[in-house]
């Protein structure tokens, strides 16, 4: 495979990109001792936000004793995913400001409010579920 040609392409084959991500997992575990994850970051971040107005209460909560509210490897990993996606989309011309996904629009219309309610409720269930399941 011509690597220069591949890098310039807007989209990559998912098997190829996925396999590269696998190499990245191995290097991360090897070099930093860190496995990939994202949901713990939202638990810690919720704690960081709550600490700004109820520090004493947060310090007494069992869950935040287990998951200290702080910026750690995974927090930076999640920030990095945002930045990496921004770099890739801007350089390939696929960045697009969009309030409602196309598939959603076809079925539920262009209303931002409806999408906001579903995405918020979905996000809450995703995080509650992943914390319950163990990350």
């Amino acid at each position: 495979m011509n690597s220069i040609k591949t890098a310039a392409k807007k989209t990559w084959n998912p098997y190829f990109a996925g396999a590269l991500a696998g190499v990245l997992v191995v290097l991360s575990v090897w070099i930093a001792g860190k496995y990939f994850g994202a949901s713990t970051t939202f638990a810690r971040s919720a704690g960081m936000i709550e600490k700004t107005f109820a520090e004493e209460r947060v310090s007494r909560m069992a869950y935040f004793e287990k998951y200290t509210p702080k910026v750690d490897w995974q927090f930076m990993f999640v920030v990095g995913v945002f930045l990496g996606s921004a770099v890739s989309s801007v350089t390939s011309g696929t960045f697009r400001k969009q309030a409602v996904p196309d598939m959603w629009r076809e079925r539920f219309g262009p209303g931002i409010g409806k999408r906001a309610v579903a995405a918020f409720a979905g996000g809450a269930a995703v995080l509650f579920g992943s914390r319950l399941a163990g990350g």
Partner: peptide, 19 residues
């Protein structure tokens, strides 16, 4: 570790977007 996290995330986010 924070730098490792950021660099790993940037590379992973890049691959996720490309695919």
């Amino acid at each position: 570790l924070l730098v490792y996290g950021l660099v790993t995330g940037v590379l992973f986010g890049f691959l996720l977007q490309k695919a």
